[in-house]
Design a protein around this nucleic acid. Structure first.
Lengths: 152, 152
DNA sequence: TATTTATAGTTACAAATGAAACTTATTTCA
DNA sequence: TGAAATAAGTTTCATTTGTAACTATAAATA
């Protein structure tokens, strides 16, 4: 007759906890793939990847695409630039807006790292059936849409 | 005839990225539920929750249960202790091992915060069908087991 | 038993992160 | 126009976090 409707909070079953537990491990393992071999931070890697995909975008735009805040982007850009992996100019039309592009070296580094991380992703996906892969994708979309919907 | 088998890495479709994007948002929203109203950090909240569930465990044990490293646990314990939310003694048998318990105040605070975070979880789950909830749970288990399996 | 190895927890220092203030450039609109 | 508001990006400072070194105790072993 104790704990009648106490709906005890059990960390191990708590969805946000389970998600963050898994995600933290994945992020660490993924980072280790390139931080050990190459002198590049996770933030820098994100910018490298997004600029390979979308050349010539601004820092703000890169931030949107990667969900990084502008300070993090600024620092990553600076780091990449100092390593000659990225070239930054400001737009002649709007001298506030940056135009970011990978250098040849930056592109080369991207193509060294990309297979490592896609291999890692494939190993993850291989754990799941095709069906589960689809389910996960759909569920992530649903949840992401929900949590990003602006709250009053 | 270009990019024949280039399996381009597209951040937006990349599972680890999608996971971390979602998880970061959830973690932030969740933290906001208690950090604004109560003077408690996310680490402290985890320890509070695990001690409510498993009273009298050691710091090391609490760390295992929460996937926090021992430094983070030590700091959270210190913080909670300074706020009189937690009581720490060392075991008489093994004077290295701590025995942690919530104080009455700590327990009271837990019961104030718990419904806020479970409500948040329920709102998340409500987005999914019962079926999807089961699928997600199973998928998280599979992936977590995989990534935590020791690698040579 | 004396020495070493291992364990629990803390402390200290360095690196990463986040929030706010700041600079420069552009837009708005009174 | 020109003052005020907005926007992009950077810098600064405080906080958080992570790694390594350290202390104290207990266990292993020679």
């Amino acid at each position: 007759m104790t704990d009648h409707k106490d709906k005890m909070l059990v960390l191990e079953n708590f969805l946000p906890y389970r998600l963050s537990y898994l995600t933290n491990i994945i992020s660490h393992q993924l980072a280790r793939l390139y931080t050990t071999q190459f002198d590049i931070t996770p933030h820098e890697w994100k910018i490298l990847a997004i600029l390979n995909r979308y050349p010539n975008i601004s820092a703000a735009h890169a931030g949107e695409k990667t969900a990084m805040d502008k300070v993090a982007v600024s620092r990553a850009v600076k780091g990449l630039s100092e390593k000659n992996l990225l070239h930054k100019i400001f737009s002649p039309e709007d001298k506030r807006r940056s135009m970011l592009n990978l250098t040849g070296e930056g592109t080369k580094l991207f193509h060294k790292i990309a297979p490592l991380v896609t291999d890692y992703e494939n190993a993850l996906l291989a754990i799941l059936t095709k069906q589960e892969q689809g389910q996960l994708s759909q569920i992530l979309d649903k949840l992401t849409r929900h949590v990003t919907a602006v709250k009053p």
